[in-house]
Design a protein around this nucleic acid. Structure first.
Length: 605
RNA sequence: GGGGCUGUAGCUCAGCCGGAUAGAGCGACGGUUUCCUAAACCGUAGGUCGUGGGUUCGAGUCCCGCCAGCCCCGCCA
């Protein structure tokens, strides 16, 4: 209903200008034009939209707000375009203007969506790439619960932005460079030298164990430490043997990451920290040329504006260590510069989004400030940190295993699927249903992974969230299984003989040329379905996937009320075809919406 | 010490540019099935929106103080 809302907004502005010409002209001249404050109705009984714009005008106009609302309503009633859209505007409360769309307009909107694969969501014409930096695990370490949110939230945001029509560059900024490689390579060279000369000679197997061994030796053995430090220098100097060892470690990690991404159906292009290695020196040189670089205590710093430390002095962002080496701030700056730079020397992005935990907020604030002051962010471009909170256990503390270790992402996904399977088998037994193993495996996998994703996405990402298998896999409430079940119910109607008219956009005659609705549950469903486009636009703008989750949950609830109280297959004539049309649009909306969250749906479960 | 985030029903959480009587789910209690999967639906109870001020026609939302929890703060990412 974005289009209708936009039309109404224009009509309201015109009505306000006609009702109060002098004041409106003055406000316009002062660059503070009257705002009708059009918003979706806060309650169904208020209609479809409400305009609150009369209230703030009471003081400047010196009139009671209800009188102002009345004057606007009179002007609206004189506008044929408005009357074509809405019923008589109602004035309520202190001066709210309640607007109800004409039923035939609502039905026409539904009709239009039945043949539209985009379900009313306009495609953007902006072809400037959006760059999304997410997931970003470290080489030679396992993906753990800390990577869960970045990966899932980043993917969902990427899907929404792609659906809007933006070219999206999904980048995995893996930790594939840095001092930890000194000890890893040294350990590899000493433990498995044959790996460096013979292809596939060694299966590194459990990289985590390998990392632990290397770390243990590094901590205990001074000679090893010295060798490891030399190894870092060799690697950064481009020594072929060191590079070979580095490549082996990266390949192994990459395979393990990819297994997780495949399982979660996440597409991601790798471009690790090492990619920016050739650009680091230039970053520091440019900062110096721009007059931003200050050498303090031997380290190259840019002092931040508006951020002061303990003693009240500005806080530095260190971009070159006193030993001449670079650090993560340097890499992040090089990445920003490259990403905004026009091709072929850069990505030419118009919007760069980082999906990382909230603990890095001040780091990014500093890096962004320096990039801005260095002039690397083009006018009109957007640079955003999309922070998220911690994953906590039932105890409200950071999620750990019973033994106190970090939870491996693989184990977490396994457990979700196992629990989903156990629950499914228990219910099949109870209901005396019989399904083959392939069905059970497919449903358990889909439900288990959907539950993990949905639980993560459905809470506002800024706050910490409490991880609970029990809650996320519950069949009732705001959970993936509840939403999936709504889709299954619609599929059931189709199986039992309801012709839903095929997929959206199919050439087959859209169900019922004339839609007619009579029941309040039908109208409630119509209104809910038509909100989809606005929700997508909101997620695009605010990067909050939980808004889409809330919407899909409410849509499922409204659908279930309709399903419960309004017969579909047992109706006949236009009522039957109209209800089938609502079923189809509900299924299409739920499938598309869940798809944008990275969650596939089921026909039966 | 400085900065950030959080604090809403017993529990988990929504709450959009400041708008009408603060919402949902779970849990609790009560009801609904010759009918498209009851994995559902209907109803009841449950609130000092951490706290004290301020701004405003109007504050959970904006501003200031305070309290509590978590996170960050020069060469790790």
């Amino acid at each position: 209903m974005l289009r209708l809302a936009h039309a109404l907004d224009g009509q309201l502005r015109a009505a306000m200008a006609r009702a109060f010409p002098e004041a409106a002209a003055q406000a316009q001249a002062a660059d503070r034009p009257f705002d009708p404050q059009l918003a979706p109705a806060s309650k169904p009984e208020f209609g479809d939209f409400q305009a609150n714009g009369a209230l703030p005008l009471a003081k400047p106009l010196g009139q009671p707000p209800r009188a102002i609302a009345t004057a606007i309503a009179e002007q609206l009633a004189a506008d044929p375009a408005f009357l074509a859209l809405c019923l008589e505007p109602q004035i309520a409360g202190p001066g709210f203007l309640n607007l109800s769309l004409r039923p035939e307009r609502l039905a026409a909107e539904v009709q239009a969506r039945l043949g539209d694969p985009r379900l009313g969501v306009p495609a953007t014409e902006d072809t400037t790439p959006v760059l999304l930096d997410f997931s970003s695990p470290n080489i030679a370490k396992e993906m753990h619960v800390g990577h869960l949110r970045s990966t899932i939230i980043g993917d969902a945001l990427a899907r929404v932005l792609e659906f809007r029509g933006h070219p999206v560059l999904r980048l995995n900024h893996v930790g594939d460079w840095g001092t930890q490689f000194g000890m890893l390579i040294t350990h590899l060279k000493q433990e498995a030298p044959e790996a460096l000369t013979t292809a596939d000679a060694v299966d590194l197997g459990d990289l985590v164990a390998f990392y632990r061994q290397a770390k243990a030796r590094f901590d205990a053995d001074e000679a090893f430490q010295a060798t490891a430090r030399e190894e870092v220098v060799k690697l950064q100097g481009g020594d072929p043997v060191s590079l070979k060892a580095w490549g082996l470690l990266c390949d192994q990690s990459r395979r393990e990451f990819q297994a997780i991404y495949d399982r979660l159906d996440i597409r991601l292009g790798e471009r690790g920290e090492s990619f920016y290695n050739p650009y680091l020196q230039a970053v520091v040189d440019d900062l110096r040329a721009a007059g931003l670089l200050v050498v303090d205590d031997g380290a190259g710093c840019v002092f931040l504006e508006g951020v002061s430390g303990k003693d009240g002095k500005p806080l530095p962002l260190i971009v070159q260590k006193s030993d001449g080496g670079f650090n993560y701030a340097t890499t992040d700056l090089a990445a920003i510069r490259y990403r905004f730079a026009p091709p072929p020397a850069g990505d030419g992005a118009g919007r760069v989004i980082y999906v990382t935990d909230a603990g890095q907020a001040s780091h990014f604030a500093g890096v962004f400030q320096v990039a801005r002051r260095a002039g690397w962010i083009p006018a009109g471009a957007r640079l955003e940190h999309v922070p998220f909170g911690l994953v906590q256990g039932d105890d409200g503390k950071k999620l750990k295993t019973r033994s106190g270790d970090t939870v491996r992402l693989k184990d977490l996904l396994d457990e979700a699927v196992e629990r989903a399977e156990a629950d499914l088998r228990r219910r099949l037994k109870e209901e005396e249903r019989h399904e083959d193993d392939a069905f059970i495996a497919h449903v358990a996998t889909t439900v288990g992974l959907a539950a993990v994703k949905y639980a993560d996405l459905s809470t506002n990402r800024i706050t910490n969230y409490q991880f609970s298998f029990e809650r996320m896999l519950a069949l009732t409430g705001n959970t993936a299984p509840y939403l999936l079940y709504a889709v299954v119910r619609i599929a059931g109607i189709a199986r039992k003989g309801g012709d839903l008219g095929g997929a959206a956009g199919a050439t087959g005659a859209p169900a019922g040329g004339d839609l007619s609705f009579s029941e309040p549950q039908e109208w409630a469903l119509v209104r809910e379905l038509l909100k989809f486009d606005a929700v997508i636009a909101e997620v695009d703008e605010e990067l909050l996937p939980n808004r889409l989750c809330s919407y899909l949950f409410e849509l499922s609830q409204v659908f279930n009320r309709f399903y419960d109280q309004v017969p579909v297959l047992r109706a006949d004539g236009p009522a039957r075809s109209s209800r089938l049309a609502l079923c189809r649009l509900s299924a299409d909306t739920l499938k598309l919406g869940l798809g944008l969250l990275g969650i596939p749906t089921l026909e039966r479960m």
